[in-house]
Amino acid sequence: HHGSGALAALHADGPHAGLPVTRSDARVLIFNDWEERKRSEPWLRLDMSDKAIFRRYPHLR
C-alpha cells in the first residue's frame, strides 16, 4: 500500500489554513481522498498530475 498513512504538511493558519504546503503534500491528500472514494466509486481514476493539483489547490501554482 503505497501512500496510506502518509501525512501531508498543511498550512496551520492564514489564508491557506488546512491546505497542503507543497505539491508532494497535495499528492498525499489527493491519493488518500482517491483511496477513500474508490470504495464507493471503483471506476474513479487517480490523477496526481500537476494540472490536477493546480485545479484542486490553485494556491500551489
Rank of each mutant, 00 (worst) to 15 (best):
G3N: 13
N32I: 13
I53K: 09
K38M: 10
E41W: 06
H11G: 03
R27Q: 07
H2V: 09
S40C: 15
A8N: 04
V21N: 04
F54Y: 13
G18Q: 09
G14P: 05
D50W: 12
T22I: 05
A12V: 13
R56C: 07
R39G: 10
G18Y: 05
R37F: 02
E35M: 15
G3K: 10
L46V: 06
L60W: 01
A26Y: 04
R39Y: 12
Y57E: 00
W34M: 01
D13M: 10
P42I: 03
A9F: 09
E36L: 15
V28P: 01
L46H: 01
D33P: 01
P42C: 06
R39M: 09
L29K: 03
E36C: 10
F54Q: 04
R55T: 14
Y57K: 00
S49Y: 01
R55W: 06
H16F: 15
H1V: 13
S24I: 10
K51H: 08
Y57T: 01
R56E: 14
Y57F: 09
K38V: 12
L44C: 07
D13K: 10
F54H: 12
L7I: 15
I53D: 00
V21Q: 15
L7S: 11
R37P: 00
G3R: 08
L44I: 08
G18F: 04
R61Q: 12
L10F: 06
K51E: 15
D13N: 08
P20F: 15
L44Q: 09
P20L: 05
A12P: 10
R45A: 14
L7M: 13
P20H: 02
H11K: 04
K51C: 14
D50V: 11
R61T: 11
G3S: 09
E41L: 04
S24K: 13
A52E: 15
S4C: 14
H2Y: 09
R23M: 14
A12K: 14
L19Y: 05
P20V: 01
A12F: 11
H59S: 02
S24F: 14
L10Y: 05
K38W: 02
W34C: 00
H59Q: 01
S24Q: 10
F31C: 10
V21A: 08
R55E: 14
E36K: 08
L7Q: 14
W43F: 08
H11V: 05
G5H: 11
F54I: 09
D13Q: 12
P20S: 01
H2W: 12
L46Q: 01
D25I: 02
V21S: 11
F54D: 15
G14N: 03
A12G: 07
